[in-house]
Design a binder for these strands. Structure first.
Lengths: 340, 340
DNA sequence: AATTGGCACTCGGTGCTGGTGAGTGCCAAT
DNA sequence: ATTGGCACTCACCAGCACCGAGTGCCAATT
């Protein structure tokens, strides 16, 4: 295990060839195949020598003593960092993706669902989309509807057309008239403010006691909605395309698949995992997490290709795919970026 | 193939024993096992005779010439219709289910998601929940928010706290003030009306032309929202618990699983399937659809246990589970009912 | 006439064996 | 430093015998 970070050009070429061959076929790749298909300029014996040093320094693995080589996590890492050439997103793919997103966005929820669907379609992996976290987003509109004498429904529309609903108890009996009046007023005074600004506003002095309480309660819940959204707890996590995994031979074994599904369907864990991975890194660009780098035991052998998307000014969420480590990174990455 | 509908008591008892043994073990059940475990009063030879007549008349199947018997679709049908004794929902299960549903319902969406989650948990199968179809539900509240000079967001709250959002184009330039005024007015005049009643209302005469157009457009979209919801097209379909299927030996073969997942993840098809199945039958009660009865080729070997739930007065949706035909119907049915 | 014990037969599952071929490691020649 | 050659390794596969659970049938019993 030698930790030199730079490989000589021939090793690079060989590594690249191994990765691309293996991702295509899923079968450990041998020296002769390499010599014929990719690297005519050297003989299989030369390549064999290089391969064995690549194994020694940890970029390749040998499933068993007399088999071909497959890339190790480190090999993949080197590949995506230095060797990969991203493919163009083909016109055919664009034609699949574009019509899903109408020019005028409708409900954010549906949009995310559609995004998950189409992303799964074009990447042949499991797509994962987390709801936008509207940390510090500004208020666009609010509305309070009386449900019964003790509860009301608070409807909050944030920047980026993020619609939130929240049922809360009223300590003061009141009627719809009053609630409508108050919310109309709030709509005038609070529009375009972010939570901090709302909190900083001085209370209006001229109210009677009951109305003042109401106001305070409503504002409190507005703030709650605007902020809790970013807490990561109840962020929506949508996934789609599990069936795609079934096409991959590495999930021919049902146990492997179960481990992965346990993660994917455990929304809470998944959400936390994603945010920790996505936020830990640079904000911009597509981010590839390979195999054990997820630090989740069950995801060994899987990789994530993630990026963030923006909805409006402050709202952003994570979108990406989960697939076998043997993934067409050169194709998946740009497609993820395109959809986002 | 003899179509007598009534079996003599001993055949009933044997069929019942076969079903319950097979659902437990997943292995074709043989005459000796039956004699020992369930039916001490007859010898294995007697049971063998009965078994072979049960095969003849189509209630049982024999995977191969010298194997045990498994129930056929017809056998399962007879079992759930006449033989099954539903088990009590155990206290342990209640303790899992109850806390998921707060006494005061919050957002319907979240509620459904929670229901799907817990149903998958307690039935060990894939749960499927379709959004409520609020056909003819009454209007509770509406709100129109200006997005830009040409589009507005319509927020509609229906009976049962069903919140709908809908972006639509405005043909007349206007401002938030006007929209708010109009929606406030609509809230007074339209509250509690169902779509037919709204349509029947005479237009208010005293408007200027621009406002009249606005009003008409808004009402049109309100009606659209209130009705499109029932169209079945874009009904939400939530599913959870795919991983449960992986525990079942019948899905050890990945191909089988793929066929099923193709159905489950194809939300549109699934929604239509469910509604056609659920609505075709009596409105009340739990409804079991066995194997080929679904008339969907890919679902051979699977069964559905479905029922409808109510949210508010007019809104109802479908909730149920999809599992292998070899399912614990006696346990699943009451649990589905309980959750609903 | 229904039930039962006995017995030969069937057939999927398991484990062993030997053959095959892709692929390696190493060495001597270039 | 590269290459051709060659012996060796090892997963994969087909063939085979064996085992045992389970059946079908028949003759004996109730």
């Amino acid at each position: 295990m030698d930790f030199e970070l730079t490989l000589d050009p021939r090793k690079q070429q060989i590594l690249k060839a191994v990765v691309s061959d293996y991702t295509e076929t899923g079968v450990p790749v041998g020296s002769v195949a390499l010599a014929i298909k990719h690297l005519g300029s050297w003989s299989s014996a030369t390549i064999r020598n290089e391969l064995s040093t690549l194994v020694e320094i940890g970029y390749l693995l040998q499933p068993h003593a007399s088999a071909g080589r497959i890339p190790s996590d480190r090999g993949y890492r080197y590949y995506v960092d230095f060797l990969m050439e991203e493919e163009q997103v083909s016109a055919a793919v664009r034609r699949q993706v574009d019509p899903v997103f109408p020019t005028r966005p409708a409900a954010v929820e549906e949009l995310l669902e559609a995004a998950a669907m189409v992303l799964a379609l074009v990447t042949d992996a499991v797509s994962i989309v987390t709801g936008p976290r509207a940390l510090g987003a500004r208020l666009k509109h609010l509305d309070v509807v009386s449900l019964d004498s003790e509860h009301a429904l608070l409807i909050v529309l944030l920047e980026g057309n993020l619609l939130q609903q929240h049922v809360f108890p009223l300590s003061v009996q009141t009627d719809q008239e009053t609630l409508s009046r108050i919310s109309a007023e709030f709509n005038r005074t609070l529009r375009g403010l972010d939570p901090d600004a709302i909190e900083a506003l001085p209370p209006l002095p001229r109210d009677d006691a009951a109305t003042a309480t109401l106001r305070a309660e409503i504002v409190a819940h507005v703030l709650l909605v605007m902020r809790s959204d970013g807490a990561g707890e109840d962020t929506v996590v949508i996934h789609d395309g599990v069936r795609n995994l079934l096409r991959q031979p590495e999930f021919g074994d049902v146990m492997r698949l179960r481990q992965v599904l346990d993660i994917v369907e455990e929304e809470r864990a998944l959400g936390q995992l994603l945010s920790s991975l996505a936020l830990g890194k640079a904000v911009q660009g597509v981010h590839v997490v390979i195999g054990a780098e997820t630090e989740v035991e069950q995801l060994r052998g899987c990789s994530l290709v993630l990026t963030t998307y923006r909805a409006g000014d402050a709202a952003r969420g994570t979108i990406g795919v989960l697939g076998p480590t043997r993934m067409r990174y050169s194709q998946v990455s740009p497609r993820v970026r395109y959809v986002s």
